[in-house]
Design a protein around this nucleic acid. Structure first.
Lengths: 106, 106
DNA sequence: ACAAAGGTAAGGATTGAACCATACCTTCAA
DNA sequence: TTGAAGGTATGGTTCAATCCTTACCTTTGT
């Protein structure tokens, strides 16, 4: 079962949920940036500069979190988003590479 | 530009469209069967036995076709669906393997 | 104590996906 | 030519995603 924040265990990750999460260009852009960044990079939601309201930000990051793509950890003042790189790569090898390889024409 | 039947050229294939097409479990099932089949296998829409009406079948196969996953060729009496395996693999390596590797719990 | 920053929740509008039933077209076979 | 099979188009419904505005909570810094 997913934990209280909605993070699924690796074996609970569903390919359909991952693909649905990555079908959205803005969410894909977030993941692409994290894949290209340093392995343990932590970013806040707003730091990606998506052209949507705060409420929509929450929605998009929840989709990413519940699909298992990112982990959101409490940092007191804010919540840091971190790519679950190794867990995803172990379960769905090559998926992140596809997103990272997409040209910047998002 | 896509041809008259809506088949995109390989360089026109959009990762977002492919992911959106594969986010649906029934469409993913079609692709998974084609990936596991012989390389040049041709199947009709109805041969997959999806539990939907004929109208919905047309819809699903159009999504697959316009994303670039399958090629539908006129066979007079019917239209044969064929996986565009090599073209997809060249442009998005590993994508088909992810779908094929999904366990049969669709 | 207070305001600002980061984030969430609730309410509501809009859009598109998915679905079905029905009707129609084309081709093959009887 | 008549019927069946495979597909498509049309019309209409239902449901979920996306988006916004507004309001609220928590933590940090003053």
């Amino acid at each position: 079962m997913p934990d209280a924040e909605g993070h699924p265990e690796p074996h609970e990750m569903q390919l359909g949920a991952l693909l649905a999460a990555l079908a959205d260009p803005q969410r894909r852009r977030v993941i692409a940036e994290l894949v290209r960044a340093e392995p343990l990079t932590e970013r806040t939601c707003v730091s990606f500069g998506l052209p949507v309201s705060k409420a929509s930000l929450t929605h998009h990051f929840r989709v990413l979190r519940e699909a298992g793509l990112i982990r959101q950890v409490d940092r007191g003042n804010s919540r840091a988003a971190q790519l679950r790189r190794d867990e995803i790569e172990a379960r769905f090898p090559g998926l992140l590479a596809l997103v990272a390889a997409e040209d910047g024409a998002l």
